[in-house]
Design a protein around this nucleic acid. Sequence first.
DNA 1: AGTTGAGCGTCCAGATTTCCGACTCAAGCG
DNA 2: CGCTTGAGTCGGAAATCTGGACGCTCAACT
Lengths: 147, 147
Amino acid sequence: MVVSQAEPRTCSIARTLEVVGEKWALLAVREVFLGNRRFDEMVRRTGAPRDTLAARLRTLVERGIFERRLYSEHPARYEYRLTDAGRELYPVILSLMRWGDRHLAGEEGPPLLLEHSCGHTLVAEVVCEACREPVSARDVRPVLPVG
Amino acid sequence: MVVSQAEPRTCSIARTLEVVGEKWALLAVREVFLGNRRFDEMVRRTGAPRDTLAARLRTLVERGIFERRLYSEHPARYEYRLTDAGRELYPVILSLMRWGDRHLAGEEGPPLLLEHSCGHTLVAEVVCEACREPVSARDVRPVLPVG
DNA sequence: AGTTGAGCGTCCAGATTTCCGACTCAAGCG
DNA sequence: CGCTTGAGTCGGAAATCTGGACGCTCAACT
């Protein structure tokens, strides 16, 4: 009897979204990538409600995306820094940004540019690590891991 | 008077998240990339509540990510297909998946593998379109567009 | 000394979303 | 006829999000 196991898949996409898929989470991550590590600054730049952002930062610290670091004693002040795992979210941020640049930027073009150390404006592209070719959905076939 | 315009930025990341950032949206997109274009199938594979998924599909169609296409008259049945814009979300999906594979897969490894047409298992990497080098956050500097 | 302001939150009440199970409706199957 | 499949809708409970007010500590101004 072949059971067509149609239970919800818990793929890596779903798992990742459980960590950073809540509202405002990725915008908080964006701000830290842009160098704004402080609560008030993040509130201003993201537009998130203070309460919501506070909650989000708490869970992102718990989940190992941010580290809460004391940067001033006395008025005890903390800033949020990316952990290594957090830093590896950069491709996610770049892909989202790229899509928005292409599909949602008005005539004025993208509202933010990134300059790569090679001297060019960064345009992010996803390639296959093995052959270095750009990847499009039609070149890819899903395979169940041997288990 | 220098006004430190700290109003919420509407960057491309925020804009993109407004389109696909709601709960279940990207999982619906994932399913269609995996070839499951039908409502019931998506419900089963994602685990989303039926009504939430129905709402999500509606907005994703409105926003030009999916096309709702009749595949059977009489019992009128529709399936959801990616538009060109939707197909370009592939890098987002791949980046999320990659992060999950690295940081959230248990001992059994990733729950799903992708085979690239080059013959290797796909490992997605983000490179700078200009110099083809892998991009890391520290090689990048934000620049405000001349306006 | 008193006031203002920055920085970093918490608290609360109300609005929105999400969730879940049950239900509908229209075929097609045996 | 009664069961199954496909694609939803409905209603009420639960969770999440929101905006505004408030608290606290310190530093700087008047």
